[in-house]
Structures are given as structure tokens and as C-alpha cells.
């Protein structure tokens, strides 16, 4: 089973995507199933170290938290954009990373960019630091602590021990 389905979640995701694209029917269900098995097998060599999902309920919780943050942060940033640009306090911040897995770091960087107000700009070569640009920053330590507590810790629990 492990050999046939190296990434069960990826397969499930591919299958659902196929069904969403083509409509739900028996034929497409079967064709999608074949693709969902064949594609991960074919792309196996592209994934040198596979991230292991350890905590599924936490992942669901994380996705919900991020969506909620996207909505609230959008409102906050809308106010900033419509207000006077002089009042903005832009800053580049370096976030020390605790995550080690590449995939988890990618997820963290994407989350930071998706929530308005912060954009991830670069990752250092050794994967230890993330450079973030903030639209309006009050206190550096506070921003770093907030990102760590709200996004990095859950991701660490989801993907690493």
C-alpha cells in the first residue's frame, strides 16, 4: 500500500481536483483515480524528503485560523491604505526560523504573504532566517512573537514532532 500510494494526501487532493474540474461521474471518478495513483508515483524523485503530516485536526484548525486572519487583516490593511501614507511605518524584519522542513517553511512564507500587511521577501541560504516586509509595524519583537505563536508553532506541531 505504501509503495502504491507514497503520498496518500496528495493523491486524494489530485483526485478531488480532477473531479471538481470535470464534474462528478463514475467515468471521471475512475480516470481521476488512475491519475491520482500514477502522478505521485511518477513525481516521486522530485520529493527528496517527504514531509510527514502528524496532526490532521491541527491542520484543519490552522487553515481556519489563516482564513479568519486573511479577512480581519484585509480590513485592517484597507484602513491603512485609505489613510495617509505618511502614517505608515514600513520595516524589513528578520524572522529566525525554528522550522527545518522545506515544505513547512514554504507554507509559513506563503501564509505570511497571504495575510495582508506582511510579505515574505527572502529566505536565507541556510534556511534559518526569513526576511519579511511589513506595511505598518509597531514593534519588531511583537510582530515576530505574533507570527511565531500564531503560524510557526502550529506548523511545527503539524509537520514535525
Amino acid at each position: 500500500m505504501r509503495k502504491l500510494l507514497p503520498f496518500p494526501l496528495l493523491s486524494l487532493f489530485l483526485w478531488l481536483t480532477w473531479l471538481l474540474l470535470n464534474g462528478f461521474s463514475w467515468g471521471h471518478g475512475l480516470l481521476g483515480l488512475v491519475l491520482a495513483v500514477v502522478l505521485p508515483l511518477g513525481t516521486r524523485p522530485f520529493w527528496p524528503n517527504v514531509p510527514h503530516l502528524r496532526n490532521f485536526p491541527k491542520l484543519v484548525r490552522f487553515v481556519l485560523v489563516v482564513h479568519w486572519d486573511i479577512v480581519t487583516a484585509n480590513l485592517a490593511v484597507a484602513r491603512l491604505i485609505l489613510g495617509s501614507p505618511r502614517k505608515l511605518r514600513p520595516a524589513f524584519v528578520e524572522l529566525p526560523l525554528e522550522l527545518e522542513d522545506d515544505f513547512a517553511i514554504t507554507l509559513l512564507a506563503s501564509t505570511i504573504s497571504l495575510t495582508p500587511g506582511t510579505v515574505s521577501a527572502d529566505v536565507s541560504e541556510d534556511r534559518r532566517t526569513l526576511l519579511i516586509h511589513a506595511l505598518d509595524m509597531d514593534d519588531e519583537a511583537e510582530l515576530v512573537a505574533q507570527i511565531k505563536q500564531r503560524y510557526e508553532r502550529p506548523l511545527k506541531e503539524i509537520f514535525e514532532c
Partner: peptide, 30 residues
């Protein structure tokens, strides 16, 4: 999935070209 990736790439391009940033920006790009 893609919007953060393109934002990241554009930010890297901007830093590479050393684009001017507002004077009161704290911290500095790499």
C-alpha cells in the same frame, strides 16, 4: 498557492535591482 510565490519572486527581483525604499523604512533588504 501562486500569489505568495509571485509576490516573493517580485520582492527578490526588487531587492536584486536595489530599488529605492522610503527613507523611514526600518531594517534593510538583503
Amino acid at each position: 498557492i501562486t500569489a505568495p510565490v509571485s509576490a516573493h519572486m517580485l520582492a527578490k527581483a526588487a531587492m536584486h535591482r536595489q530599488l529605492r525604499r522610503r527613507e523611514d523604512t526600518r531594517g534593510r533588504p538583503w
